[in-house]
Structures are given as structure tokens and as C-alpha cells.
């Protein structure tokens, strides 16, 4: 456990970023952007927030590369599941 990376300053910075992009995600919705742009922005904001939380708050960025891979690679299956189900839902049943 490397203690020096648990800096208070880093956490405050990450926290402010999280709040900032939460507000961005929130004001995007009533703007009336085209559907695909709105959805991609919202998902991008969520992925950025998730990335910040996992990398800094959960400290994964500073772990050994083997740990990083063993956590992140299985999650690709989740995306595959979501994509497969959405594909099924939009093509076969309609």
C-alpha cells in the first residue's frame, strides 16, 4: 500500500471534477440536442465519472497492472451483454 498517493489534494480535485461533470450531465438534458448527441454526451459523462471514481477513489490507477487487468477485462463482458440484448431487442422482435 503506497501511502503517498492518498493525498488530500488529489481527492479534493477529483471531487470537484465529479461535481463539475455531474452538473454538465444535468444541464445537457433540457438543451434539446438531437437524440444521439444527447445520449452519447450523457454516457460519456457517466464513463468519465466512473473512471475518476475507480482510478482515484478506489485507487485502481496505482495498483499493479495484473490487478488492473483482472478487474477491468471481465467488465467487457458486461458491455457485450448489454449490446447483445439491445441488438436482440431492436432487431428480432420488431
Amino acid at each position: 500500500m503506497s501511502k503517498q498517493e492518498h493525498g488530500k489534494k488529489v481527492y479534493i480535485k477529483v471531487w470537484l471534477w465529479l461535481l463539475a461533470i455531474t452538473i454538465v450531465g444535468f444541464i445537457v438534458s433540457p438543451l434539446g440536442l438531437p437524440g444521439w448527441l444527447h445520449n452519447s454526451l450523457i454516457i460519456l459523462v457517466a464513463l468519465m465519472k466512473g473512471g475518476l471514481i475507480v482510478a482515484y477513489f478506489m485507487h485502481l490507477k496505482f495498483e499493479k497492472i495484473s490487478l488492473i487487468y483482472s478487474i477491468l477485462l471481465p467488465l467487457i463482458l458486461l458491455i457485450a451483454l448489454a449490446v447483445a440484448l439491445l441488438y436482440e431487442g431492436t432487431t428480432r422482435f420488431l
Binding site: 490487478l67 483482472s70 467488465l75 451483454l81 440484448l85 439491445l86 431487442g89
Partner: peptide
């Protein structure tokens, strides 16, 4: 993995829990 077994088990639990929530959200999408 450069971490103690306790911490590694928590990470494994988190991944498995992410699968549960992922299944919920994928079903919701469907």
C-alpha cells in the same frame, strides 16, 4: 496482484456485484 487477499477478495466481490447490476441494467435496456 500486489494486494492482500482481503483486498483482492473485495475486488472480486465488486466485479461479481458489477455483473449483477450489469444484468439488471441490460435487462432494463431490453
Amino acid at each position: 496482484f500486489g494486494v492482500s487477499w482481503r483486498k483482492y477478495m473485495m475486488w472480486i466481490f465488486i466485479v461479481s456485484d458489477a455483473f449483477t447490476f450489469g444484468a439488471f441494467l441490460a435487462a432494463y435496456g431490453l
